[in-house]
Design a protein around this nucleic acid. Structure first.
Length: 670
RNA sequence: GCACCCGUAGCUCAGUUGGAUAGAGCGUCUGACUACGAAUCAGAAGGUCAUAGGUUCGAAUCCUGUCGGGUGCACCA
């Protein structure tokens, strides 16, 4: 509710300022005061106006004087407010009509935002190399990406979710090498393997790393395997395909445990076979985005020029320009990535062939984008052609991602420039391990590593926290709680509750940090059930559910019918009024709940899910305090009880909406 | 060499486009359960916002320098 309100206040201020002072304020700060006793919205615009007036006309007018005039103008303009006051040196504070606002909000949706992107947004996330188990770092990527998808959808956007499968890379080749040259297995042997395949590959991949280190000439086998995979020849290629598909399925299953689904799984092998690059190459050349080097050490290469500023910083060691086509005529990774992104935006004439790869319990299908048409299973699958893309990729790829965007902008027609400009690399820092976590995992650390604040995970060393293992531990912990507190429930239900608690715990843990904050993973923190955790959030909703059950058992309504309150406006007014000393706790709670849409809007604007995570925790905290101070069930005054129920159900609806956007689902009990 | 990210309470982190008294969680200390479930709540102690300048009516936030930590700048993927 506060989002549109804020926008209308912003517009009113701009209009009033232009009319009264002849100043056009492009950005007007309309903020939430520190507490509701200072108003529901406030603007420090008078300070800015004073500065601009002085600069333009030399007229010196005090901010407070300007604020008084502005407040007067706003009073005539804005009708939702009870009063508009000037405070301090020049703040204009706006106070809502509390009873009316509360009653009106009961019928309103949690959020109603206008789409920001001009069409379908393609969000790519997860994109784990399909050669071993997913670990906690991959989980951060997926949790961020999925939350972003949910935020965008809640904000009215159309979203398509992609998970890129790099099925032809060195990492898959390494596992092939391990199976064939270390374990002496054939394709049939590998196909016959039972047990958790991704974990077997996890261990094998670490062994391959050590095996190469023993004798570096063995790296030749990787190169040979990579070539075989690229040519799609022989058993090595078939084995690679088997591994990649099987591990991709493992990853989808892991993510499914968290409730994360995908629409399309474009494969790198298809991009190569269908020769997306050929189209992209022509377009980039035609657009003048790349040039052919005829001299110097990069003679024979096609490169994308760095912008002039960056070019000036080039030295002997580092060129600023980016090579896309090597002197032997082959395209490199960045070039392929540009081609892939031109496809995402519908700027290539080629397309994948789709087959149903993974069916979710709810019937949703993840379509694999491959090179060959198969059966008739994909006639309606239509992917790509996005108006914009958002890539959830770790911050280490910022440099390459910048070139991808430049390539897309260079090729896109004028009509698509704006939406592509809105496309972005959603960069995030990785998850590292605290030295204590490494020791807990059974790894021995060097003296140097032991002293570091954190240690990077390494698939090659087998050092990392596997996603499924962590989820298992979380579920086990939650189950122990549930068995103690809900012993009457059947086991199926207890397990379902434990699963929901585990998902809430891990998702909140990964989303409460801002994207650019490096997470030093610590088992104690991740497994915590107290304090700022997903478990705490669930507990708030479980308490509401409990209240609802008790009230209904007593024949009372939850939520209370709004009609029960409409006839008692004076009473409501009294309950919601500040006491003169401090802000009113009821109104503070209601106003916080009504800021849900503002939090959602900010998260969408900044593409930062932690905004919603922090908001949800704050709201849950405020509700817990309210819960402890006021006993709803034992309230004997019918009207007051209806009032308390109304507040609780308002908080419940916004808290549930916030958790939904974070991918957290609350059980009825826990 | 250049670019990007980070430095805020003992620890882990938030901090609304520059605004009102810098906030949470954990940990420490003091209290509150025969319960609308204590996986909770109330309270206390704890900060020179790395550092030195600058801009501004106003700076944790913007600019510059310095220090410390991380990452990137391959004819690798």
């Amino acid at each position: 509710m506060f989002h549109p309100l804020r926008e209308s206040v912003r517009a009113a201020i701009q209009a009033a300022v232009e009319r009264q002072f002849g100043i056009v304020l492009a950005d007007v700060a309309v903020e939430f005061p520190p507490n509701v006793a200072l108003g529901d919205l406030a603007t420090p615009a008078a300070f800015e106006i004073a500065k601009r007036l002085k600069a333009a006309t030399g007229e010196k007018r005090s901010p407070r004087d300007i604020a008084l005039a502005l407040a007067e103008a706003l009073r005539a303009e804005l009708r939702d407010f009870d009063r508009i006051e000037v405070a301090g040196a020049g703040y204009v504070n706006l106070f809502l009509r509390r009873p009316e606002t509360l009653l009106r909000a009961l019928d309103a949706p949690a959020a109603a935002l206008a789409p920001r992107f001009g069409g379908k947004v393609i969000v790519e996330h997860t994109s784990v190399n399909p050669n071993k188990s997913a670990h906690i770092g991959h989980l951060r990527n997926a949790a961020l990406g999925d939350a972003l998808v949910r935020i965008l959808r809640a904000a009215g956007e159309t979203v398509e979710v992609h998970n890129y499968i790099d099925d032809t890379g060195a990492q898959v080749a390494d596992v092939v090498v391990g199976f064939v040259y270390i374990e002496g297995k054939s394709l049939a042997d590998v196909e016959a393997m039972t047990g958790k395949f991704d974990d077997a590959c996890w261990d094998l991949y670490a062994r391959v790393g050590a095996w190469y280190a023993e004798d570096e000439s063995r790296l030749r086998l990787r190169a040979e395997t990579l070539h075989a995979i690229e040519r799609r020849e022989g058993e090595l290629a078939a084995l690679a395909e088997h591994i990649a598909e099987r591990i991709a399925r493992c990853h989808l299953a892991t993510m499914q445990r968290l409730g994360i689904q995908y629409d399309a799984l474009p494969c790198e092998s298809a991009i190569l076979q269908l020769n997306f690059w050929a189209d992209a190459f022509e377009r980039l050349k035609a657009a003048g985005a790349i040039v052919y080097e005829t001299e110097g050490r990069r003679a024979g290469c096609w490169v994308m020029r760095a912008d002039p500023e960056a070019a000036a910083t080039a030295d002997d060691e580092h060129d600023a320009d980016k090579i896309l086509v090597r002197s032997n005529g082959t395209v490199n990774y960045t070039g392929k990535d540009i081609a892939y992104h031109l496809w995402k935006l519908g700027l290539l004439d080629r397309d994948f062939h789709y087959r149903a790869f993974y069916r979710y319990p709810d019937g949703h299908i993840a379509w694999m984008g491959g090179a060959t048409a198969s059966e008739a299973d994909s006639p309606r699958a239509q992917f790509g052609h996005g108006a914009a893309y958002l890539n959830v990729i770790d911050a280490g790829q910022s440099y390459a991602q910048a070139f991808v965007k430049r390539g897309a902008l260079a090729v896109a027609p004028p009509s698509a420039q704006d939406s592509i400009a809105a496309s972005a690399h959603i960069a995030y820092e990785k998850v590292a391990l605290t030295p204590a976590s490494c020791l807990e995992l059974g790894f021995t650390l060097s003296e140097e590593d032991r002293r570091r604040p954190f240690v990077s995970m390494s698939g090659r060393k087998g050092l990392g926290v596997k996603a499924d293992d962590l989820l298992d531990r979380l579920e086990g912990k939650a189950l122990a709680h549930v068995e103690a507190s809900q012993s009457a429930l059947p086991e199926v239900e207890r397990r379902d509750i434990a699963r929901k608690v585990a998902v809430a715990a891990i998702r909140y843990f990964l989303l409460k940090f801002a994207r650019t904050t490096l997470i030093a993973f610590d088992f104690a923190d991740a497994l915590a059930e107290q304090g700022e955790t997903g478990v705490y959030l669930l507990y708030s909703l479980v308490r509401m559910a409990s209240i609802r059950r008790k009230l209904r058992a007593a024949g009372l309504d939850f939520p209370a019918p709004a009609a029960a309150l409409r006839d008692h406006l004076a009473q409501l007014e009294a309950w919601l009024r500040d006491d003169g000393q401090s802000a009113n706790e009821f109104w503070a709670l209601a106003a916080l709940a009504l800021r849900y849409d503002a939090a959602l809007a900010e998260a969408r604007e900044t593409l930062e899910p932690s905004v919603v995570a922090k908001y949800a925790f704050q709201l849950a905290q405020a509700f817990s305090a309210f819960y402890n101070r006021h006993n709803i069930r034992h309230e004997s005054d019918n009207v007051r009880r209806a009032f308390l129920i109304t507040l609780a159900s308002l908080v419940e609806s916004r808290l549930r909406a916030a958790l939904n956007v974070l991918g957290i689902d609350a059980p009825e009990r826990m």
